[in-house]
């Protein structure tokens, strides 16, 4: 969003903004990313939060001793515990999705038509399915425990939810892997083939090492999206942050003045966690764009 802006626009109205952008870009080239946008956004969010508290104050019954902020403070450990659960689900789902998705992505470039076709189908199927529906299906279809003879492996709801979220991640990772492999110039395949490398050696020693850089930004982006999607697990009854928030509000007797502060707090938690990931993704994208 830097250089081309000044050249790209010939609308006079846009010129001041374009100059500003160009100046910011120039400054970033010298000193690295300017922290200001982050700060500004953070402040904005904080302002919304403060405003919502104020609003709650105004709505509150005057002689009630506890302010909404006090209530939030009291419930915070429970809410944060729920948030940690969200993060845990996101980690595990990402790991599972990445491992299986990578295999699926490699399956998509297999020379065996059956493997290629089925990998393609599975990828497309789970990539074009609503996440919530997948979540429901896994909850319904996977039993709550597996029995192998005498050993019983329990499958609590949160593990099922994690599997449900790992499915779309898997499909997206599969596409990321396939796309990155396809973006390697065909000359790399030709030269390693003409050096008598086998296909397996070509993929693992020549092609994939060149893909990691291209794969990391979209992969991180996917992780951020997954993290935000973990709240869907509340719909299927997992004790994550959304569920805990709803419970807390219910325990407070459904006081309406608490709704906005509590949900704002949830938003802030996700923002604080996801925004740095988004920034880092953009930075990596830029760095790799220059190098490749």
């Amino acid at each position: 969003m830097s250089g081309p802006v000044t050249k790209g626009t010939d609308l006079p109205v846009l010129l001041p903004a374009a100059h500003k952008l160009a100046a910011t870009a120039a400054a970033e080239r010298l000193t690295g990313p300017v922290p200001r946008p982050t700060l500004r956004l953070g402040l904005l969010l904080f302002a919304i939060f403060v405003f919502s508290i104020g609003l709650a104050h105004a709505q509150a019954v005057p002689d009630e001793a506890e302010t909404p902020l006090d209530a939030l403070w009291r419930w915070m450990p429970v809410l944060l515990e729920g948030f940690v659960f969200n993060i845990a689900i996101s980690f595990i789902a990402m790991m599972m999705g990445t491992v299986v998705g990578t295999l699926l992505g490699l399956g998509q470039i297999s020379l065996m038509p059956a493997v290629r076709g089925s990998s393609w189908f599975v990828t497309q199927f789970f990539r074009n399915a609503p996440w919530l529906v997948l979540l429901f299906l896994v909850m319904l279809l996977v039993p709550f425990e597996f029995r192998f003879g005498n050993t019983v492996i329990p499958f609590p709801g949160w593990i099922k939810a994690t599997i449900g979220l790992a499915l779309p991640v898997m499909a997206n990772v599969s596409e990321i892997v396939r796309g990155a492999i396809n973006s390697v110039p065909s000359g790399q395949w030709e030269s390693s083939e003409s050096l008598a490398f086998s296909r397996r050696q070509t993929i693992f020693s020549i092609i994939l090492p060149q893909c990691y850089k291209r794969m990391i930004p979209p992969w991180m982006n996917l992780y951020a999206i997954l993290t935000m999607a973990t709240v869907l697990a509340s719909i299927v009854g997992v004790d994550e942050m959304m569920t805990q928030t709803r419970r807390a509000l219910a325990a407070e007797g459904g006081a309406t003045q608490l709704l906005v502060p509590f949900y704002s707090f949830v938003l802030i938690c996700f923002f604080v966690y996801c925004y740095p990931i988004a920034r880092l993704t953009i930075r990596l994208e830029r760095r790799f764009a220059v190098k490749l």
């Binding site: 110039p185 000359g187 790399q188 030709e190 030269s191 390693s192 083939e193 003409s194 050096l195 008598a196 490398f197 086998s198 050696q201 020693s205 020549i206 090492p209 060149q210």
Partner: peptide
């Protein structure tokens, strides 16, 4: 292909390997 070497217009060196590693890779791995 072990008997027939080929060099291309676009060089097609492996960008993630040094010059020495580029030369060594095939004899070591193949």
């Amino acid at each position: 292909r072990r008997k027939v070497g080929m060099v291309f217009q676009q060089y097609n060196l492996f960008p993630h390997k040094t010059a020495l590693q580029n030369v060594m890779m095939a004899p070591v791995m193949v």
